[in-house]
Design a protein around this nucleic acid. Sequence first.
DNA 1: ACCTGAACACCGTTCAAGT
DNA 2: ACCTGAACACCGTTCAAGT
Lengths: 225, 225
Amino acid sequence: MSPSTRDRPAKAPLSREAVLQAGLKVLRAEGIEGVTMRRVATELDTGAASLYVYVRNRQDLLNQMFDEVIGEIDLGDAPDPKRWRDQLTALLHASRVAMDRYPGIARVPLANVPTGPNAVRAADRMLGILRAGGVDDRSASWFVDVVSLYLNAASYETSIYVEEGREHDDVDEEIRDAFSQLDPADHPNITALMPMLTAGDGDERFDFGLQLMINGLLNTEPPKI
Amino acid sequence: MSPSTRDRPAKAPLSREAVLQAGLKVLRAEGIEGVTMRRVATELDTGAASLYVYVRNRQDLLNQMFDEVIGEIDLGDAPDPKRWRDQLTALLHASRVAMDRYPGIARVPLANVPTGPNAVRAADRMLGILRAGGVDDRSASWFVDVVSLYLNAASYETSIYVEEGREHDDVDEEIRDAFSQLDPADHPNITALMPMLTAGDGDERFDFGLQLMINGLLNTEPPKI
DNA sequence: ACCTGAACACCGTTCAAGT
DNA sequence: ACCTGAACACCGTTCAAGT
């Protein structure tokens, strides 16, 4: 005789939403390597095979999880010609913060172009800000691509340390160690620039790259297309 | 009675070099996902356990393979103040070509800062070119970081298609398909810019990003460090 | 329609036993 | 010192059998 449903806590029914939330929970706690079908299934008190009703495969699960993460980004207010540069910078920083909460998720948009609803909405917003700023349509189109690659790579790189449970400072020290053992005659530039190569925190360096690209945008001919 | 060594082809003895070459052969043919310890061992007619004399683990094997790939890059002639910009562009294009020959290898430098001899030599050369061009030391130091993230992300993205056996054109079509199904009212900018968003080949787009960053470098204050 | 256990074909890494 | 087979603890995915 099976116990009445009254006597045991109701098990939440499976759903696409439940699978995604379980996946995101594992991702936050253990990083992208920890997001295995079996691990996510355990979180839902079921077996891996049960997930295949809601996702096509692991890659599809990760793609859908990525779009959820992008959905957390505050897109800010409507594009404003007077504040476009600040709006663009804010949007990109917000994107980085959102992705950094989920260690390794940035590998997903590097591995295939995102076409989820939230990713598409964010891309459209970025294009809107650039156009509000008077940026040429051709430059704006390609800029979104370029800056997204940079954003994703930057987030992926920092999140890897999180996943490995190492501190950014420890990694810095390792790099300094490796560089300081180099023969100065063979590596005059690295030797001379050592202090600057590892200076600044991740955010400062990321922002430097962003400003570089935005200033470049204002000083580069649109592509001939 | 074992046959005389005369009677059978000598099996090449294992060595660090042999393991790396076997790994690179598998990488070229099957992409980074195909580079498993077991697969590389098979290439050497042995078992996976035998590789652990020469590499600490799979990540270490990939790190060492990456440095071999970087070793294939032609660093060009000595930094020349008159030609620094062309030299910089050429070095970055050569880096991309080298990595693109090995599908997915670009994920390695995204996952941990490369400190192999060839990677360090290439970084020193890039710094040398920037300094020859009169770029401020602080800007040069951070620029190497920024442009490397971009380079690695760009190479990783294109190589993923290779690994999946898909053509770049097919992917383009998929993206166009996804975009054309969007509600124009919700996505006015993507809709308006559709033709440009997917225009140009990978090389043109990559070069646009490079010129953006170099022009940005010439129009951005050095970081305050 | 949804869920499940078991099976299949893989992984990386370790270790005792060999040479 | 180097090499190996076997074992351990995992994977993603499929499928027949259940409800």
